[in-house]
Nucleic acid binder design. Structure first.
Lengths: 204, 204
DNA sequence: GCTAAATGTGAGCGCTCATCACATAAGGCT
DNA sequence: AGCCTTATGTGATGAGCGCTCACATTTAGC
């Protein structure tokens, strides 16, 4: 794609991310080679390093793109929904994304992209909205460190990771659509944790 | 380590796994190089392939070792514990392991070891006991596909993954010990899901 | 329209995994 | 014992990788 008109590409950076995204989605993060991304853009392999410090920087850009996609599908703000239904809807979207884009999802949360020793501000920014949505829907009034927020997030993320990493084989359907449905049904069992308790927290 | 007496090593396979385990623990899966493992055993780099089909097979053997270690620390069978306390103890051990051995933990559940297209029976066998423990403690009578089992597992696994992948930075303490304590405290909030129905025990 | 900055090139270094024919040792057999 | 099969380790080698370099080309600022 992204044909070049002459010596210069025009927007090689974006082209490299697009190529990388495609490679990751199809064959996993290990399939993203700087050389393949370059070739995909019809450019020499050393051109990559004009736009990315190293391979990992490119991986992170792809991961950020993934977070943007995920945030888009989990941006559920229907006022007609009860808070619990909204929580379910967000969780379901999260799970569906993980199931439909396993390679991308793994990259987003994997060691390549996330590194304690050398964090990436852009990536963190891209991942931010997600947690904020969860925090509100979990009934923690946006408090991300609230136990309810972390529980809601960990349940959904944990189910996503386990099924991605093949740990639920035989326990849930293998068909992606059915599996997503089954996992969403499991989420329902967790709803009591996020119920409005008798002492109404309606204020505010 | 593992000095050799002559031309033959004696137990190169075990030596390679030991070397790989050390490399992974210290510097992550990407630091496990067939050459490094060979050198660690004072052996030529091609000797590795007499014992492992390819690099990934070695990675999987290391992962299996990790599962064995994890199963050992989560093997909690104190009859004096209530079922909920046992569930907490298992979850805590799981979290502590993940926090203490982040690189190994990531390998165990990562795409290198777990692969839908080409599953490893040995690895699955090594991971089995873990789930069985959880299933019983979750009150599902050993039914692994029970929603409660999957919820219990996903909460603990999700918290482990999130903190490993740096997603909880700023939300939980950065000191490993304190972080483990905080995460265990969060587990307590999930206990109502695993209460014996009709019986109200432990309100907290 | 000239110059400086940005961008792309091609050669190449050092590393990786993996394979090959070959060398050496260990164990079973008579 | 001696022989032969099998298991195991070696060194050379190929292909691919990330990344760097000096150099070519284009764009943009003055």
């Amino acid at each position: 794609m992204t044909k070049r008109k002459g010596y210069h590409h025009g927007n090689l950076r974006a082209g490299l991310v697009a190529a990388g995204l495609e490679l990751v989605r199809k064959n996993g993060a290990s399939a993203l080679t700087t050389r393949a991304c370059a070739q995909w853009n019809g450019v020499s392999s050393s051109a990559v390093f004009r736009h990315f410090r190293d391979r990992r920087a490119l991986l992170r850009a792809v991961a950020a793109e993934g977070f943007a996609m995920l945030a888009r599908t989990t941006a559920i703000d229907d006022p007609a929904l009860t808070r619990q239904d909204r929580l379910l809807a967000i969780g379901g979207a999260y799970l569906r994304f993980a199931i439909e884009e396993p390679n991308l999802f793994r990259l987003m949360y994997g060691a390549d992209a996330q590194d304690t020793a050398d964090p990436d501000p852009d990536l963190e920014a891209a991942a931010d909205p997600l947690l904020a949505q969860t925090a509100f829907a979990a009934g923690a009034e946006g408090d991300m460190s609230d136990a309810r927020t972390l529980l809601a997030w960990s349940i959904v993320h944990g189910l996503a990771m386990l099924t991605l990493d093949n740990q639920l084989e035989g326990l849930v359907p293998s068909d992606p659509r059915q599996r997503a449905e089954r996992l969403e049904a499991i989420l329902v069992h967790a709803l009591p944790l996020f119920a409005d308790v008798g002492r109404s927290e309606r204020r505010g």
